[in-house]
Write a protein that binds this DNA or RNA. Structure first.
Lengths: 201, 201
DNA sequence: TTAATTATAGCACGATCGTTCGTATTTGAG
DNA sequence: CTCAAATACGAACGATCGTGCTATAATTAA
């Protein structure tokens, strides 16, 4: 949890997340945001002391939403490959349906590549946390005996994460169902390539 | 060679490509660009009839540069896997050294994901051309007997392209050498997984 | 109930945005 | 040489940007 917001702030951040998923966090305009939310520019601005603070809160809001929608439900699944698969499924769904602009953290990651500052640091922190989470889930799958004992978990996650972003990019390029199929095929291959002998889904 | 530019225009586009690689094509500001180039805002503007036209030319300039730096030199290599490897090598080098902001087309692709208009269409066109090029090179590797005869070339390129973008993202997250190692390991795995029996590099 | 804090609004600021206009300067073709 | 086209400039446009200041409601605390 760790995130309690006033009603207004929540509404604002919801809209802001949608806008910045589509048009980028850098180009998130307070005036435009206020117009969409339906309140005055200065009234909205009062909730955050600066634009940077707003952007930072949008990032945290996105991360919070990500954890709640993608990670938490998956934790109810059994440890190991089932949980990993649940995370991937939820991530795809989240990317496709919840935020039409695709994973906002991926977008922000590329936006802030070369913009030193608080926001880049924060994006990198969130991204690192995300990857560390994936690595942990992968290690659990190894411990459970689902994946090969000598698996290079970091490398595994690199490939998994790459396929996810590949899906993200391909989805805009072509039919999204085709991109989804491509991703699923690659993901399946990745799993089966490292599946421990004697364990099958 | 399909792209003849006046001296000024070339200088402008060079700077514009650098700036937009770092800060995004959307946020490319004509005033700022003029300041860096060292000419007046209106003088620079006169070369392009609109900002959109400028952005479009920057994209074409990037694509042109990509072909010249990444693709063309690789075409001198032997058909098949060597050529594929050369493309990948050049792409990495290009991403790392030439444009510090990473492949500008990847950046633009994510920027314009959900911004309908001429520019998104153009980015998608360039991206599609790029992927079709990779697929062609891959098919040649099959024909040459380097890769499995029943290889799903589209899937192969999806994974290759994903690893490239993964490298792009990981590179900002951690030591770039580590990201490069991760990419190379994945790429090597991808190749060896589909290498035709009886052929080795 | 009163006092204090918070939420929102209106207005204005300096800065920058993309763009236009009018005007010099340079260049190239006849 | 002449004249038109191309190139570059400064100034200014309306719009929007992020951000303050001030005032008025609404909510909460004492």
């Amino acid at each position: 949890m760790g995130l309690t917001l006033s009603e207004s702030k929540e509404k604002i951040l919801n809209v802001a997340l949608g806008l910045s998923s589509k048009f980028g966090l850098v180009n998130l305009s307070i005036g435009e945001l206020a117009k969409v939310v339906g309140m005055s520019k200065s009234g909205l601005f009062g909730h955050f002391k600066s634009k940077e603070a707003l952007q930072k809160m949008v990032l945290d809001f996105a991360a919070h939403h990500f954890v709640n929608t993608v990670i938490k439900p998956a934790l109810k699944k059994e440890r190991g490959i089932p949980r990993l698969e649940a995370i991937v499924d939820n991530w795809i769904t989240w990317s496709l349906e919840v935020h039409i602009g695709g994973c906002p953290i991926v977008t922000a990651a590329i936006e802030f590549d070369d913009r030193p500052g608080v926001l880049r640091d924060h994006v990198q922190f969130l991204k690192t946390e995300m990857i560390k989470g994936f690595e942990k889930t992968t290690r659990i799958a190894v411990i459970e005996g689902h994946l090969d004992n000598d698996l290079d978990c970091e490398q595994f996650v690199f490939e998994l994460y790459s396929f996810m972003i590949g899906f993200h990019i391909y989805g805009r390029l072509m039919n999204e169902e085709m991109a989804k199929e491509k991703f699923k095929k690659s993901f399946k291959g990745l799993i089966s390539r490292h599946e421990a002998k004697g364990w099958t889904t």
